[in-house]
Amino acid sequence: MIISTLLHDIVAAGFLTNPAVRTAIVVGALSATVSSVVGLFTVVRGQSFAGHALSDIGAAGGSGAALANISPLLGFVAMNLIGALTLEAFQPKRVRGRDLVTGVVLGAILGIAALLLYLDTTLTTSTGTTVSVLFGSLFTLPSNSLPLAIGIGSVSIFTIAWIYRPLLLSSVSPELAQVQGVRVRWISLVFLLALAAAVSLSALLTGAILSTALLIGPPTIATRRTHSIRSALVLSIAIGIGVTLAGILLSYDSVAWTSQGVGWPVSFCIVALLTLVFFLVPRRTHTVGEHLTKDEPRSAPTPPSSSALVSK
């Protein structure tokens, strides 16, 4: 009884029957999953800035799409693929200076985004384009965008699964990967394209400039708690979906709480929850016998006090 009353209090009336909410939940869970998977490699490869840059670059595509009257998702994807290719083409070999090149490319494309958005507002009568492209909301999503979203999400996930081993190896050490015959440059490009697809999808969810939250947040928390890539993946997806669904619920509920009935935007709710989780989850410094999957060989128990953890 108490539980059902409580549930009733938390889940406001009409939450699950509202079609806008249903679309939001499906697309939200989907893009949270894709972002968490792709984001894990983004964090491990130290490409957070490139990940964020792609979301901003996508904004140029989103605003271009409004001008050309095509689906914003298509605009995002097209622009992001161009952005990914440009970033990779200008990428210097050494890690130093990589961010600088990303920044210059981003600056140029943001300039174009400024122009396109300006044309959007002057040529068309839609004044809200800037806000909807940059801060897009789940609740305003048309339900017919679902098949396209699922398609783009699957392409991104399958690409990562396809290049999983060489990607992981070249993320740990490009040199070791080269020795095994991995074409590091090629893997890096394919990864950037998968990243571009993932970012486009989450840009729909939280808007272009907030999609970084879902890309970086859950994987960062996950890598602090886990010691193997697989458990990090699982935890990252769990956090991503959990935070997104909780955010959607919070946003829906907040309409009733706030005085004017305006409610809090979904993107704010998701990001706020993510930041909260980040501060609540402490870093795990070392493991004492991480659980292995059953067919992996079990090794001797770890000696409790070992000098092994003294970092160099």
Partner: peptide
């Protein structure tokens, strides 16, 4: 060898990648 302490990868995983790490 600059193995980033933030990368969640175990000794086991690193060694395992030595077998056909290119492996599609």
């Amino acid at each position: 060898i600059n193995l980033d302490p933030d990368v969640p990868i175990r000794t086991f995983d690193l060694v395992e990648l030595g077998i056909n790490g290119r492996g599609l």
